[in-house]
């Protein structure tokens, strides 16, 4: 199946060659891999962490780990799955660290209370806007969604980002998170319902 394309349209064969060169510590191959996957990884991390500066730092660390542990990649999983797993672990660790420092994930929101999702009320924090039509578009909706995601607990956040932002299959998500498919589906459903609740209260 040497010609089946990966999510980036790279043929499996070309990807395998790149990885082999990377395993031989070829700098150009590494640069190429970073260049190919940087946007995917950055976006994933940004949606998880909610802060650009932190996201850039974490995404860079993801690739440093890729370089350090590429010998451990045996090709049983897809490279992108392996890479996402590393990214997911880095996100988890950073969120724990930031949580300990009671960091505010979006810079505006208190990350702590997922409770708030259950009884979200329109508040001064997010201006309540009258016409849903107006809100549904553009930056404000995007900000609300990002805030809603930031209020989810770490695992729910990860599942929403992998499935609904990155559009990965359930099979891939299971491989990345190590969870069984039924567990992924039921937890993702909870996460989606929480997010729905949060947005419905704010957008109407």
């Amino acid at each position: 199946m040497g010609a089946s394309p990966n999510p980036l349209g790279l043929t499996a064969l070309r990807e395998r060659l790149l990885i082999r060169r990377l395993q031989q510590r070829d700098e150009r191959a590494f640069h190429e891999i970073v260049r190919l996957y940087q946007h995917k990884v950055f976006n994933l991390v940004l949606r998880m962490i909610g802060n650009r500066e932190e996201a850039e730092d974490v995404a860079q660390e993801v690739f440093v780990t890729v370089f350090k542990s590429i010998d451990g990649f045996r090709g049983e999983a897809k490279f992108s799955t392996w890479l996402y797993r590393i990214a997911a672990n880095h996100c988890k660790n950073r969120m724990k660290y930031l949580g300990r420092r009671s960091y505010k994930a979006t810079g505006e929101l208190d990350e702590a209370a997922e409770r708030e999702l259950q009884d979200a009320q329109p508040s001064a924090m997010t201006p309540h806007l009258d016409g849903p039509d107006k809100v549904l578009e553009g930056m404000q909706m995007e900000r609300l969604v990002q805030e809603g995601i930031a209020l989810l607990d770490e695992e729910h956040r990860m599942l929403i980002v992998l499935r609904d932002v990155e559009d990965l299959s359930y099979q891939e998500i299971c491989a990345i998170t190590g969870l069984a498919e039924g567990t992924v589906k039921s937890r993702l459903h909870r996460a989606r319902m929480s997010l729905k609740e949060y947005l419905a209260k704010r957008v109407g």
């Binding site: 260049r35 946007h39 995404a59 690739f63 549904l136 995007e142 990002q146 609904d164 989606r192 729905k196």
Partner: peptide, 25 residues
């Protein structure tokens, strides 16, 4: 809600990202 999540912009890594990673290594 899910439509809005799916419509989130796919943000690009900042300029110089790849060079920064190589430098870090």
């Amino acid at each position: 809600a899910l439509g809005a999540v799916g419509a989130l912009a796919h943000e690009l890594a900042p300029r110089g990202f790849a060079a920064g990673v190589v430098q870090r290594v």
